[in-house]
Structure formats: structure tokens, C-alpha cells
Design a protein around this nucleic acid. Structure first.
Length: 822
RNA sequence: GCGGGCGUGGUGGAAUGGUAGACACGCCAGCCUUAGGAGCUGGUGCCCUCACAGGCGUGGAGGUUCGAGUCCUCUCGCCCGCACCA
């Protein structure tokens, strides 16, 4: 055995050279289009060098791509880089090095590692979102959206990250802090660019039913979109002769409204208070609320604050006068920025009413309480209405909800409506390293799109990357000052850049036609490949990237540029690899470097290890010992193959194998069946690898017995063939050794033969009262009576039946017999 | 608070309602070796036992079933997402 030494550092580059020279993974655009498959992993953000999370991501994707190829598909499996972004820019601020330089160094390192790992990528379609060849089309798409009103500019209260000195999208604010900087976000009133993603709220929600995604990701998207069915109801303020609309999901509680609350940001708050003795108090409160910390304001355990406005509105259902308040627990950006308060049936309103000593009026009877009077308020359950006028009293509240809405509608006082939590996507960033927004501001023409033939608007070089409240691009005066494309008067370019999530919202389309210099893509090519058959990435993108990409796809479909309305037909979200139970980070010093590991063990061992560590959708903890174990297995697989190739006669499979041969043949077909299902029907890569381990264990010198050489060779070839999607190099090498140089990647996937999946004998489990008392060998085709007879004959079973009455016998053919005794 | 997920040996994890712990790590013993972070063989849930036989065992408590890790109810713990969203 000693002379067969597994050397991944020799084997892996040797096969990589073959695949590189022959362009094995390039998928041509000509040829038949049936059996096409598009396998895609989320593109990496290139920074430093790849980590084990990348290794896992691309290993999963590569396994799927290889499996699909060998089961007869033409597979598109491309790679690119999400290359714009803040880390490179922050690095530039610190060092003065152009972000392009550090980014491209990182890209080079990623390319080198992906090749070293042997990932089967069609490199002819490689892209970087930071190249003018790519972002030209990002800008073009922006202009298409602009023309259709899907991209627009408005002044709004937006999230300002004081550390990054840029605005952020709602999706990038976590617990009131900037996603990257961790700094408390401030609210600023700014004019910014938005995408009208809210136009697609319903479609984004409904079409979730048409795609095969993990349920928890769908749920997260549903919650984020936050569709609420309810009603808009108008409350009139007679003093000022104006009407205020509120949104409520509970029109059934309208009769219980006892006061009215507006958000501090509401435009009319100051006007309403004007001339009342509350004027000063309101002004003070609003100023305080607007400058306060947004996160603290969002804390629902904080005591309620607010101020009386000195005015009243009329409750449209009963004419009652309700005092108006301003309070910061009402948010301007949900609903209408004003609410009707029903303290008896809403916790927040209840807290406010208690603090300000406002009336609390129960209008839904508690079915569990005598007289319906709830023992504890607020009461949020269901029950019949009370105190709601003769017309509605006694009706079940959920039914009354519709009745009241209908009544409001006929009275012209309100109507049914739907509200969303989803906000339009704020895409402007006051930063340098991003895609320039192709817009020119002209003093006379206003907002003018850059004409298509002037694209791309290239990012100019600057020397100062640090933002000073506005984009660093503003300092590039030669670039900023341009004639207006309309009237030729002096005008200025937009100096904000786009959120990097814009870049990654359409890259999967570009791969289908990556080298096209006259269009973003040829619709025929995009329609050929789209949607992506299998998308793979981290769950951290469940909302941001995955929602944005879906929005882009729908908008582009409405523009007639593609046919598909959903980008990713199947989604797989991989779990994180941790070390010692913690997320890997430089500061913790627990980072495992794939580069170092691959140098020590070879790529195949690492690839197999990250898949064997556990189910790939779950988090898993890295173990150096585990890698050792995988290294032993891979090495044993190769050594056994190499030795068999040298020492065993290359016989065909025998007509009638001996007992050992048959056993091994059966094990091989069992493994084919198991691995095929584990890869093809689920993502059970860990158990697929375990099945190949079992097969190899069966082939050890001690266990192979008298099995024929032809069968040993076949079983070893099968082991290599089955494990190929995970460890392409070693399996290709072993297979070639065993099969006279045959190329494994060109072999069809093995087929399990039914006649070897069944044996003519089974092990019959014998139970008494559900407890296993023995096992006997039985013919596979034995009938129930025969199985019962065999089970009764098992000595230990017999002793457990002795002196008992058998009241029932359960026979499961081919499996077990269970005696129920008394 | 709302929504989703997860609790199985010393460890990672396997188990269409039908043999709990596949496969692997670790550990123990043995072989081989000048040596081994190499290779090979065997053992390894816990209790009791020389062994056989037995008892216990999938966070906890009930239930359905001939039979429950798996299905149902309640409960405890952990993780993730959203959260003053009217």
C-alpha cells in the first residue's frame, strides 16, 4: 500500500489544466436549448481573500452544476464580482489607495482561489459590477426606470448614517443603526432618488407562491412587505375646516375612539396648534421629537409622551368630539401619520390614555366575562360589539368590521384600503465608489437624463474620498460641469452614486449575454436561460438582495425586456460555518483560511469536508480533526483505486457473481440509488458522502473476500463516479486509472439497477409489545403467515410469548413482526 | 409582542410512523513500524453483567397508535427575523 501515495498537489492542477485548456465548462449559446440549466451562487463582494463561507457556497453550487451536467443538462455556471461598495472606499479614505486598486487586487485573489478549488465556472462570462462595460447598463436600466416613473426624486425624511456620511435604505437600518457602521441613524429631510418598489408590493407578495424558496425566506419577505387590510376613515376638524384621514385595521372599534393622535412630523401639527394656548407646548414637543434618537423613539416599552393640540375632531360614526394630540408613538411613514386612538382595545392607546387620563370606552364585549365587561383592559380579543349604536351592537366584531366599512363607504366617510410596511427603495448614496446616477441637473430644464449614446457616465478619478455631507464626486468639477443635453446651458451632473444593491439586482441577466456591447442583453439569450434554476447563497440576503432582484425582474418584464417575472425559481440558503461556536472574525482570531487549508490538504478534501460537516442549510462548527478525517477518506479512496487499477485484472462484470461479489454489487447499486436521491431530490450532501464511505468500507481488503476483480473495479469506479460532484479532481483521477483513462466528467450519471436493490433474504425484526426481542433471516417473498411462524420460532421471542396470550399480530412485509400480548 | 426554526451519545450528525445513534470525529485495545500527526484490525449511548438475558434512553409532561425522535396538546430552553406598523 505504501507505494500508493495520494498527492492532491499533483493531481488537482493536472486536471485543472485539462479543463482549462479544453474550456470544458464553457457553455456555448448555439446548439439545442432543451435540457438547459442555470445554476448560480450569489456573486461575492471581493475583499481580501475568500473565506470558508465562500468555499461552502461555491462548493454547493459546483456540486449541483456537476450533477446536472452528468444527468444530461447543459449548465450555465458563471462567476462575477459585486465590486462597488463601502469597505473598499473606507480603505481608500484611510490609505489614499484608489478603491479600484484594492478591489481588483481582491478580485485577483478570488479568481486564483476559485481556480485552485476547481470550481467549474464558465469564465468567458465573468463580470465585475465596477467596470464601465457593466455599469453602463446599470445606468441604462436606471434610465428605463426613470422614463417609466419607476425611478424618481423626492424630498423625504431619510436615514442618515453619520459615520458613513451617507443615506441608507430602510432595509440597511438594523435596530436603528447603520448596517455596516453600527452608528445610530439620524433622520434627515433630504431630496433623494427612489425606486418605486411599492408599486410592486402586491406582486412581490403574491408571486412568492410561484417559486420554490425556503418557507422562512418567504415569510421574511411577506413580513417585510407587511400588507395590512383595513380602512381609511376621515375625521373632520370643524375649527380649521379640514379633514384628516386615518388608516385602521380595526374599523370595528371606531365607536371606541376617544382621542386622535398625529405624528410629530405631520405637516399640519403646528398649524393646528396655532392660535391655541397649546401653541408653544406643541412647538417645543415637535422640536424635541424631531431631534431625538430614532431608535429610542422606537422602543415600545418607553413611557408614552405627547401634547394636546388644543383642537378636536369629530368621530364620523357617532359625532363625538375627540381631542387631538401630537405624540411620537405615531409614525409619519406608516399609514397617514395620524391615528384614531381606541384605548380599550389597543395597548399603545391604552398606555397613552392612562398617562393623560383620557376616557376609555369598551366597544367589544369579552365573551368570557359576565355582561361582556372585560376584567382587564386593553381587551384585544374578539367578541360581539357593544356601545356601538343600535345598528351594530350585538354583531360579532369581525363581521361588523366589514359592515362598518361598507356603511362608511355609503356615507362617504371612508373606504376599505390596503397599507404596506414596504417603503420605496432609496438608492442615492453620497459616496464615491459606486455607479454614477446618469442624470444632469439643468437650471432651466430641470432633471435631464443623460442621453443613451453618452453612456456610460464614467466614474471620474478623485483624490479625496472622504465624504463631507455630500458625494466626493462634487469635488470633481471638470466632471460635474457639463452642458445641458437639452438646451446646452451650463448644467451639473448628479453627484450621488447608486446603492450597490442596484448593481446586483440584474447581474444574473448579464451572465446570459455578458459580452454584449450593444445591449444589456439579447432578450433571446436572457429568455433562454432565465429564470435561474438553482440559486444558492446566504440567508442574510433574505430581504435586501432577494427582494430587490425580484423587483428588478418584474419591472424589466413590464418594460418588455425579459419574459420571466421571477429571477430565481429555486433558492437554497446555506448555513454559516462558525469556529468554536462563534462567527469567524479577525478580531476574535478564529478565522480559518481556506488558502492555508487547501495548501495542506488539497481542494477536494476541503470541499468534501464543508459538505460533510452537516446539512448544508444549517450552521456548522469548523473542526480541524474533522478535516483530518476527510483527508483520510479521500486519500484511502484514491489509494484503493490506484492499487486496484494496478493489481486487479480488468475483467468485465461476471455473469453470475459469487456471494461476496453479489454483496458488493448490491452495495454499489444501493449507493447509486442513495446518492442520486440525496443530491437530486434534496441537498443531503452529507449523507451522500456517507453512502460513498460505506461503499468504500465494503471494499477494504478485509471485507472484499472472494469478490471478482471486475466487481471490485466496478464498485470502485462507482464510488469515484458518485463522489465526483463534490471532489472532481481525485475522483476523475481514480476513475481514469481504473478505466483506461476514461474521462469521468463525460460519463453519464450511473443508474441503479432494480434487481440489485433487492435481496432475496431480509432480516426480520421480531417485536413483542413493540420491543425488539430478536432478529431472524427470512425469505424476501415470505407471506404474513410464514413471517409470523419464523418470528415465533426465534428463541428469545418464544420466551417472551411464553405464558402470555397473543391478542394481535402486526406483520409488516419485508420488515417486522410485532406480537401484542396480554 | 408577532412570525420562523431548532433541542438525539463525549462531539458533528443519521433515521418514508416500523431495528434510535448510519457515516465521521474523539477515545480505548491490538497489529505493523527504528519512529510517527502514517497505515491496518476490533471496540465504543447509559446502567447491570464474565457472558447471555435484562433495564433505561431523542429537553420536560401528557395524548393518539400494535408501535412515536417522527403525529397532536401543553411546557421549558436556545437561535433567527420583524417590531410603538395603528
Amino acid at each position: 500500500m505504501a507505494e500508493y501515495r495520494y498527492d492532491p498537489q499533483e493531481i488537482e492542477p493536472r486536471w485543472q489544466r485539462v479543463w482549462e485548456e479544453e474550456q470544458t465548462w464553457v457553455v456555448p449559446e448555439d446548439g439545442p436549448t432543451d435540457r438547459d440549466a442555470y445554476v448560480l451562487e450569489m456573486l461575492p463582494y471581493p475583499s481580501g481573500e475568500p473565506h470558508v463561507g465562500h468555499l461552502k457556497n461555491y462548493t454547493i453550487g459546483d456540486a449541483v452544476a456537476h450533477f446536472k451536467r452528468r444527468t444530461g443538462h447543459r449548465v450555465l455556471h458563471p462567476m462575477g464580482y459585486d465590486a462597488f461598495g463601502l469597505p473598499a472606499e473606507n480603505h481608500a479614505i484611510k490609505t489614499g489607495q484608489h478603491p479600484r486598486v484594492s478591489t481588483e487586487a481582491a478580485i485577483a485573489s478570488f479568481q486564483e482561489q476559485f481556480r485552485r478549488w476547481g470550481v467549474s465556472i464558465d469564465w468567458t462570462r465573468e463580470l465585475g459590477t465596477h467596470t464601465p462595460e457593466y455599469y453602463r447598463w446599470t445606468q441604462w436600466i436606471f434610465l428605463q426606470f426613470f422614463e417609466r416613473g419607476l425611478a424618481y426624486r423626492k424630498e423625504a425624511a431619510v436615514n442618515w448614517d453619520p459615520v458613513e456620511e451617507t443615506v441608507l435604505a430602510n432595509e440597511q437600518v438594523i435596530d436603528g443603526r447603520g448596517e455596516r457602521s453600527g452608528a445610530l441613524v439620524e433622520i434627515r429631510q433630504l431630496t433623494q432618488w427612489f425606486f418605486r418598489i411599492t408599486d410592486y408590493a402586491d406582486q412581490l407578495l403574491e408571486d412568492l407562491d410561484t417559486i420554490n424558496w425556503p418557507p422562512h425566506v418567504k415569510t421574511m419577505q411577506r413580513n417585510w412587505i407587511g400588507r395590512s387590510q383595513g380602512a381609511e376613515v376621515a375625521f373632520r376638524c370643524d375649527d380649521t375646516d379640514t379633514s384628516y384621514t386615518v388608516f385602521t385595521t380595526r374599523p370595528d372599534t371606531l365607536f371606541g375612539a376617544t382621542f386622535f393622535v398625529m405624528a410629530p412630523e405631520h405637516a399640519d401639527v403646528l398649524t393646528l396648534a396655532k392660535g391655541t394656548d397649546q401653541e408653544q407646548a406643541v412647538a417645543d414637543y415637535v422640536r424635541e421629537a424631531m431631534t431625538g434618537d430614532a431608535h429610542e423613539r422606537g422602543d415600545d416599552s418607553r413611557e408614552k409622551t405627547g401634547v394636546f393640540l388644543g383642537r378636536y375632531v369629530t368621530n364620523p360614526v357617532n359625532g363625538e368630539q375627540l381631542p387631538m394630540y401630537v405624540a411620537d408613538y405615531v409614525l409619519m411613514d406608516y399609514g397617514t401619520g395620524a391615528i384614531m386612538a381606541v384605548p380599550a382595545h389597543d395597548g399603545r392607546d391604552f398606555d397613552f390614555a392612562t398617562k393623560f387620563d383620557l376616557p376609555i370606552k369598551q366597544v367589544i364585549a369579552d365573551p368570557d366575562a359576565q355582561d361582556g365587561v372585560a376584567t382587564e383592559l386593553p381587551f384585544v380579543g374578539d367578541g360581539p360589539l357593544m356601545n356601538s349604536g343600535a345598528q351594530f351592537d350585538g354583531q360579532q366584531n369581525r363581521e361588523a368590521l366589514d359592515a362598518i366599512t361598507t356603511w362608511l363607504d355609503t356615507e362617504g366617510k371612508g373606504h376599505a384600503t390596503v397599507n404596506y410596511r414596504l417603503r420605496d427603495w432609496l438608492l442615492s448614496r453620497q459616496r464615491y465608489w459606486g455607479c454614477p446616477i446618469p442624470i444632469i441637473h439643468c437650471p432651466s430644464c430641470g432633471i435631464v437624463p443623460v442621453p443613451e449614446d453618452q453612456l456610460p457616465v464614467e466614474l471620474p478619478d478623485v483624490t479625496e474620498y472622504k465624504p463631507k455631507g455630500k458625494s466626493p464626486l462634487a469635488a470633481a468639477e471638470d466632471w460635474v460641469n457639463v452642458p445641458c443635453p437639452n438646451c446646452s446651458a451650463p448644467a451639473k451632473r448628479e453627484t450621488d452614486t447608486m446603492d450597490t444593491f442596484v448593481d446586483s439586482s440584474w447581474y444574473f441577466l448579464r451572465y446570459t449575454d455578458a459580452q454584449n456591447n450593444s445591449a444589456a442583453w439579447d432578450p433571446a439569450r436572457a429568455n433562454r436561460w432565465m429564470p435561474v434554476d438553482q440559486y444558492i447563497g446566504g440567508v442574510e440576503h433574505a430581504i435586501l438582495h432577494l427582494l430587490y432582484a425580484r423587483f428588478f425582474t418584474k419591472a424589466l418584464a413590464d418594460l418588455g425586456l425579459i419574459k420571466t417575472r421571477e429571477p430565481f425559481a429555486n433558492l437554497f440558503t446555506q448555513g454559516m460555518i462558525t469556529k468554536d461556536g462563534a462567527k469567524m472574525s479577525k478580531s476574535k482570531g478564529n478565522v480559518v483560511s481556506p488558502r492555508v487549508m487547501v495548501e495542506r490538504y488539497g481542494a477536494d478534501t476541503l470541499r468534501a469536508y464543508v459538505l460533510f460537516i452537516g446539512p448544508p442549510d444549517q450552521d456548522a462548527d469548523w473542526s480541524d480533526e474533522g478535516v483530518e478525517g476527510m483527508s483520510r477518506f479521500i486519500s484511502r479512496l484514491w489509494r484503493t483505486s490506484a492499487e486496484a487499477a494496478d493489481t486487479l485484472a480488468a475483467d468485465p462484470l461476471p455473469e453470475s457473481p459469487n456471494a461476496d461479489g453479489l454483496r458488493i454489487l448490491r452495495k454499489a447499486h444501493w449507493a447509486i440509488d442513495k446518492v442520486t436521491a440525496d443530491i437530486g431530490e434534496r441537498f443531503n450532501f452529507n449523507t451522500a458522502i456517507a453512502a460513498v464511505m460505506e461503499l468504500l468500507n465494503e471494499l477494504s481488503m478485509a471485507k472484499r473476500g472472494d469478490a471478482e476483480p471486475g466487481i471490485i473495479r466496478f464498485a470502485l469506479s462507482t464510488a469515484n463516479s458518485l463522489i465526483y460532484p463534490f471532489v472532481p479532481h481525485v475522483s476523475t483521477d481514480g476513475y481514469a486509472l481504473l478505466n483506461d483513462g476514461a474521462r469521468l466528467w463525460e460519463q453519464p450519471w450511473p443508474q441503479a439497477e432494480a434487481r440489485y436493490l433487492e435481496s432475496d433474504e431480509i432480516e426480520l425484526v421480531c417485536q413483542v409489545m413493540g420491543k425488539v426481542r430478536g432478529r431472524v433471516t427470512a425469505p424476501a417473498d415470505a407471506d404474513d403467515a410464514e413471517l409470523e411462524r419464523l418470528a415465533r420460532g426465534e428463541p428469545n421471542v418464544a420466551s417472551h410469548l411464553d405464558g402470555k396470550t397473543v391478542v394481535k399480530v402486526i406483520v409488516v412485509r419485508g420488515k417486522l413482526v410485532n406480537f401484542v400480548v396480554r
